[in-house]
Amino acid sequence: MKLTAKATIQIQKPIEEVFEGIVNPEKMTNYFISESNGRLETGKELTWKFPEFPVEVPVKDVKIEINRSISFVWDKETVVKIILEEQPDKSTVVKVTEDGKPHNEDNLKWAIGNTEGWANFLACMKAYLEYGIQLRKGAFDFMREN
Rank of each mutant, 00 (worst) to 15 (best):
residue 2 K to S: 10
residue 2 K to T: 15
residue 2 K to Y: 10
residue 3 L to A: 11
residue 3 L to N: 12
residue 3 L to Q: 10
residue 5 A to Q: 08
residue 9 I to R: 03
residue 11 I to H: 03
residue 12 Q to E: 12
residue 12 Q to M: 09
residue 13 K to D: 06
residue 14 P to G: 10
residue 14 P to Q: 06
residue 14 P to C: 02
residue 15 I to Y: 11
residue 18 V to F: 08
residue 18 V to L: 03
residue 19 F to K: 03
residue 19 F to G: 02
residue 19 F to M: 07
residue 20 E to T: 15
residue 20 E to A: 08
residue 21 G to I: 15
residue 21 G to V: 09
residue 21 G to W: 11
residue 23 V to A: 04
residue 24 N to C: 06
residue 24 N to F: 07
residue 25 P to A: 11
residue 26 E to F: 02
residue 28 M to G: 01
residue 29 T to K: 15
residue 30 N to G: 13
residue 35 E to F: 06
residue 35 E to P: 00
residue 38 G to L: 07
residue 40 L to P: 00
residue 42 T to Y: 08
residue 43 G to R: 01
residue 44 K to E: 13
residue 45 E to A: 13
residue 45 E to D: 12
residue 46 L to N: 01
residue 47 T to Y: 11
residue 49 K to W: 02
residue 49 K to P: 00
residue 51 P to I: 13
residue 54 P to S: 07
residue 55 V to E: 15
residue 55 V to C: 08
residue 56 E to Y: 05
residue 57 V to N: 13
residue 57 V to W: 03
residue 58 P to L: 06
residue 58 P to M: 05
residue 60 K to W: 07
residue 60 K to V: 09
residue 60 K to F: 03
residue 61 D to G: 07
residue 66 I to C: 08
residue 67 N to Q: 14
residue 69 S to W: 09
residue 72 F to E: 02
residue 72 F to M: 06
residue 72 F to H: 09
residue 73 V to P: 00
residue 73 V to W: 00
residue 75 D to I: 02
residue 76 K to N: 09
residue 79 V to A: 01
residue 81 K to H: 06
residue 84 L to Q: 05
residue 85 E to V: 11
residue 85 E to A: 12
residue 90 K to C: 10
residue 97 T to S: 13
residue 98 E to K: 06
residue 98 E to Y: 14
residue 99 D to Q: 13
residue 104 N to F: 14
residue 107 N to M: 09
residue 107 N to K: 13
residue 107 N to G: 11
residue 107 N to T: 15
residue 108 L to S: 04
residue 108 L to T: 15
residue 109 K to R: 14
residue 109 K to Q: 12
residue 109 K to E: 14
residue 109 K to D: 13
residue 110 W to G: 01
residue 110 W to N: 03
residue 111 A to S: 12
residue 112 I to R: 08
residue 113 G to L: 04
residue 114 N to V: 04
residue 115 T to I: 10
residue 116 E to K: 08
residue 117 G to V: 10
residue 117 G to R: 12
residue 120 N to Q: 14
residue 123 A to H: 08
residue 125 M to D: 02
residue 126 K to P: 01
residue 127 A to R: 04
residue 130 E to Y: 05
residue 130 E to H: 06
residue 134 Q to C: 04
residue 134 Q to F: 07
residue 135 L to M: 11
residue 135 L to H: 14
residue 137 K to N: 13
residue 137 K to W: 11
residue 141 D to K: 05
residue 142 F to Q: 08
residue 143 M to I: 02
residue 143 M to T: 12
residue 144 R to L: 03
residue 145 E to R: 10
residue 146 N to H: 02
residue 146 N to P: 02
residue 146 N to G: 08
